[in-house]
């Protein structure tokens, strides 16, 4: 139901109150809150350049998927890929938009960022409540130079459903069969221990507040809040510090070529220099859009973002897609999408 006439009347009456802009295409998108900062930054610049208005609503990945399936937005954005069956059923296609890293953060007296070493299985055992103290032999063994306190480990996780949790638990499930069996992975899992913070900011606040705690946040939050992130052993058996190069390496070495519709979760990527908990957000669009003008504007927007938006993404601590992946995505557009 809509009131085209009424709304115009209402709108006209109020026009003097405000600066109504844009007669160019208006594109709406909805979904993942992870990409909100960069997408809205891009859309502001893109709006200045082209007059097209990209309106992105950060309603969460679940909401984004629901909205695009219902056809109420021009693109959805999700931190988890849609399975091929869903894509086929609704005539949708998806492609990565931006990459980000998820890092474990700790708050232990005297431990600086990037000092503590962890492995995936140990991380899983900590978050399952099996390793209870920081001076556990398993932790001391891989941290020979560090003096770890004899106090209890305090686990902090996300309380709200989130893509961050999805990727983090996906990684733990990949490296720990027991985790896979008892908890599985998803946007929220029944955590056996710890407290939940709302959003990345909530987790950061708790970890900063509580001594001897461990949590996981998106890289940007660890940097902005000057938190002690840890090293992590990757699939190639190397201990790495999280940084943009390590995230980009994960994206570059992930096996996109064989992933139909880019349906690939990048955690535990094989590369030598690949950070093991690297995540991407997918844009989801109709292959045969209802409104071709708007869809074209959306593609223009993503193309512009891939080519010119990278400095802005960098300033917000996101990682640009590697050029090889961008080429692949552009190929995918020409092949699959009509317009």
């Amino acid at each position: 139901m809509s009131f085209p006439y009424l709304s115009r009347l209402f709108g006209l009456a109020l026009v003097p109150l405000m600066a109504v802009t844009a007669h160019a295409a208006e594109v709406t998108g909805a979904g993942s809150s992870f990409v909100y900062p960069v997408l809205s930054k891009w859309s502001a610049s893109f709006h200045e350049k082209t007059g097209h208005q990209i309106n992105y609503q950060s309603i969460g990945s679940g909401g984004g998927i629901a909205q695009i399936k219902a056809g109420t937005v021009d693109f959805g954005a999700s931190d988890a890929p849609l399975p091929a069956s869903d894509l086929a059923q609704f005539g949708l296609g998806q492609f990565p938009v931006v990459i980000g890293g998820i890092v474990p953060v700790v708050h232990i007296e005297g431990i600086a960022p990037g000092r503590l070493r962890l492995t995936g299985p140990l991380l899983a055992r900590i978050f399952m409540g099996e390793i209870k103290t920081w001076n556990d032999p398993a932790l001391s063994r891989i941290n020979p130079g560090l003096k770890l306190p004899a106090s209890a480990i305090f686990v902090v996780h996300r309380s709200d459903g989130s893509g961050t949790t999805y990727n983090f638990t996906n990684y733990l499930a990949k490296v720990s069969p027991r985790w896979q069996k008892s908890l599985g992975f998803g946007t929220s899992v029944p955590w056996p221990v710890g407290v939940g913070g709302k959003g990345n900011e909530g987790v950061s606040a708790y970890v900063n507040q509580i001594r001897n705690s461990i949590g996981y946040v998106e890289y940007a939050y660890a940097l902005q809040n000057r938190m002690a992130y840890t090293q992590l052993e990757n699939a190639a058996g190397r201990f790495l510090e999280p940084n943009n190069a390590a995230f980009a390496a994960a994206a570059a070495t992930a096996d996109w070529a064989h992933a139909e519709d880019f349906n690939l979760i990048m955690t535990n990527a094989p590369g030598e220099k690949a950070w093991p908990i690297t995540a991407t957000t997918w844009a989801i669009m109709y292959k045969q859009p209802k409104d071709a003008t708007r869809a074209r504007a959306a593609f223009e927007f993503f193309k512009w973002a891939f080519e010119h938006g990278q400095p802005q993404a960098g300033s917000l601590d996101y990682v640009p897609l590697p050029p090889s992946l961008v080429r692949q995505i552009e190929g995918y557009w020409h092949e699959r999408f009509k317009s």
Partner: peptide, 9 residues
């Protein structure tokens, strides 16, 4: 992120 464009729905 934008001003209201006059559409009610």
């Amino acid at each position: 992120n934008y001003y209201w464009n006059g559409h009610l729905t």
